[in-house]
Each structure stands twice: as structure tokens, then as C-alpha cells.
């Protein structure tokens, strides 16, 4: 309060012209704009490259054997089509995308799907690999997780839990069961003490599978894709 009054008093003594005030602010804004544009243009390609690398790494991890991938999104007719971000497309208006993985011979290895679901603390973000031909979840990577350290974070730290998702049947749907009670291929053993986080992961998988399944099947039929014959 007193500071403000003092300021006003001092201002009354020798008031700088409004022009000078506006000029100072305008100049400060202009200079800051210049610096920011410079740094932005310099760091943007590096940041985008980082993000692309991280995504690539995650996709290769959840789809074993993958060496290249295609980005797909739903087109206006509700069909999957290859997605190329046009420079005009606005941030925030990009469609949701899924990733079709392929191995060295150009054979289909699976689809990587990203999803988010409220867990114990906050949204859990997961990228998972889906073998659309064998109808199985084949890989799993937690991208975003603020669950309780030591309990909820076992959804990516607990080896046994992660192993649930290397060969998990998705039909009729994925079901969480207590530890040690897994009998069917579509069951996931929940983590003791972190049931809510485990269930959130299962819910996330089911939701996103239902969301994409039909479109993926239509795409596979249309393009006559099948998985590479397994030797086992």
C-alpha cells in the first residue's frame, strides 16, 4: 500500500509521457519476441526429433520385432488411413492416431495404441501393442504415471505384472483377477496393494480395444494383411 502511494507521489513530480511508457513496454515486448522466436526456431527441430525418437522407441518395445511403422488415423468416413500431418493442421485438432508396426520383411507385427485412464492419483498413460490377427496384447509400456511410489508404480516396475501383457488374450474381454489366480489367457493378475491402479490399466486396455477394433479389422481385411508365420 505505502509503496504504491509513494510511487504515485513520485510519478506526480515528473510524469514521463505516455508515449515513453508505451514505447518502453512495446520495445521490451518486441525484443523478447525476437529472442523467443530465435530460441524457438533453434530448439524446435531438436525437441520434435526427441519426441519422435521416444515414440519410436516405445513402439518398437511394445511390438517386438518391429523395425518400421506407419501412422494411421480415422478419415472422414470412419476408416483408417495413413495420416500425414499437414503443416496447416492446428495443434489440439490432430486426430487420435495408432501405429502399424512392420518387421524387416514388411510383414505386419501389430498395432500400437495409446490410451489414458484415471488411476489412483492421476491419469495413467499407456502405449500397448495389439496383435490384431492373434487377438492378443503383446507389449506394454507406461508413458505417464503419477501413482504412489512403491505401490501404484509397480504397474511398470513390477516384472511379474508387466509379464501379464506379453501374451494376453483380449476376447471376450480382459479381466483382472487376484494374484496367483490366473487361469484363463484373458486374465491379468492384479498387484497386491495396488488394485485400483491395476484395474485402471485393464479398463484402459478394454476401452481402447473396443474403440479401435472394428476399424483395425476393416483395415486388415481391405489390405489383406496377416501376421508373419511364427516358427514356434
Amino acid at each position: 500500500m505505502s509503496k504504491e502511494e509513494k510511487m504515485i507521489e513520485e510519478g506526480a513530480e515528473k510524469e514521463p509521457s505516455s508515449f515513453r511508457l508505451i514505447f518502453t513496454l512495446g520495445f521490451a515486448g518486441f525484443m523478447s519476441g525476437l529472442i523467443l522466436v530465435g530460441v524457438f526456431l533453434f530448439t524446435k527441430p531438436i525437441i520434435e526429433n526427441n519426441k519422435a525418437e521416444a515414440l519410436k522407441k516405445a513402439i518398437f518395445k511394445v511390438l517386438p520385432g518391429t523395425t518400421t511403422f506407419k501412422t494411421l488415423a480415422l478419415d472422414n468416413n470412419g476408416k483408417l488411413a495413413e495420416y500425414n500431418p499437414s503443416p496447416e493442421s492446428k495443434k489440439g485438432e490432430e486426430p487420435e492416431r495408432i501405429f502399424f508396426g512392420m518387421n524387416d520383411n514388411g510383414e505386419f507385427t501389430g498395432v500400437a495404441i495409446h490410451g489414458g485412464e484415471p488411476g489412483f492419483q492421476d491419469i495413467i498413460g499407456v502405449l500397448f501393442g495389439y496383435d490384431a490377427v492373434g487377438k492378443m496384447v503383446i507389449g506394454y509400456e507406461v508413458l505417464q504415471c503419477k501413482e504412489t511410489p512403491g505401490l501404484g508404480d509397480k504397474i511398470f516396475k513390477d516384472e511379474a505384472f508387466v509379464m501379464n501383457f506379453t501374451q494376453l488374450a483380449v476376447e471376450p474381454e480382459i479381466v483382472p483377477v487376484k494374484k496367483g489366480e490366473k487361469q484363463n489367457p484373458n486374465e491379468v493378475e492384479a498387484i497386491t496393494g495396488a488394485t485400483i491402479s491395476s484395474k485402471a490399466v485393464v479398463r484402459l486396455l478394454n476401452k481402447n480395444l473396443t474403440k479401435w477394433k472394428t476399424a483395425i479389422e476393416a483395415y486388415l481385411n481391405e489390405n489383406q494383411i496377416s501376421t508373419p508365420a511364427k516358427d514356434e
Partner: peptide, 15 residues
């Protein structure tokens, strides 16, 4: 701001 200004100039977000 996000809808009309910042999609063109994300670097001005904070300011």
C-alpha cells in the same frame, strides 16, 4: 488465448 493466439505462436504462451 489457446484457441486464437497461441496456436500460431506457442513460444508466447508464458508471457
Amino acid at each position: 488465448l489457446n484457441t486464437w493466439v497461441l496456436i500460431h505462436a506457442p513460444y508466447l504462451r508464458l508471457i
